[in-house]
Design a protein around this nucleic acid. Structure first.
Lengths: 111, 111
DNA sequence: CAATCATATATCCATATTGATATGTTTTGA
DNA sequence: TCAAAACATATCAATATGGATATATGATTG
């Protein structure tokens, strides 16, 4: 079996840096494909392809306006990523919770 | 150019579901390769390979103990993912901040 | 020292990819 | 109506993949 398709889920779609750049750009507001091409310094077909991947995982929406297509962010598609990684956050975050510190000290005294 | 290597960064490493499973298992405590094989129902060479990818992006550490290798989680390697996706969290989260609601209302009255 | 256990590595296969380039397709404007 | 603008799609090349399988490595045991 080969690697999972980038359209498999948000995790795979977002593994590509250019696609994260696109999402970052859209976080500031809707953009036209041409605007994204300018901003990313990437050929238009590549931008269109990345947008397609993002569309397939539901991370962006499109709206037709004349001969332009206006892309907008759908951040909810990133929820599963946040949900997963947030479960790890407490493992590196500094603890400001005093109770937790006290409990740690008690454990040390026990051992 | 082909797709980026899974060892390129944490984003790529974590795109693979089995590797997330491994990290999830390690979040509960150190595990031996054999324990991970049992837990994941995956052939040992595959587990070893996934562990290697996770090692190369710094998401796990290894410790030798006789003929076993004990893997442990290094959650800090996931920080960049958290940092990136957390920037989107406010876009879908319900707002409980009263001030923000008031400001939104004022904006609406202006327009 | 030989045999075994616990892992790691090597090779093969099928596949999905990214960038480059060429070519549609639809809308707009003269 | 014809040409240009704005996108989308198709194809090609090079490559990295993940699973399967076989094999190598290193530690332990008898």
């Amino acid at each position: 079996m080969a690697r999972a398709a980038t359209t498999e889920d948000a995790f795979n779609a977002v593994a590509e840096p250019r696609r994260r750049e696109i999402l970052d750009a859209l976080a500031a507001g809707e953009r036209t494909v041409g605007e994204l091409v300018d901003r990313l310094d990437l050929a238009q077909p590549h931008v269109s392809r990345h947008l397609r991947v993002l569309r397939e995982v539901g991370a962006v929406h499109v709206r037709d306006e004349g001969r332009q297509r206006i892309y907008s962010l759908n951040a909810e598609a990133l929820k599963p990523i946040y949900a997963w990684v947030a479960g790890y956050e407490h493992l590196w975050a500094e603890r400001f919770d005093l109770l937790e510190d006290v409990l740690d000290e008690m454990k040390q005294q026990d051992s």
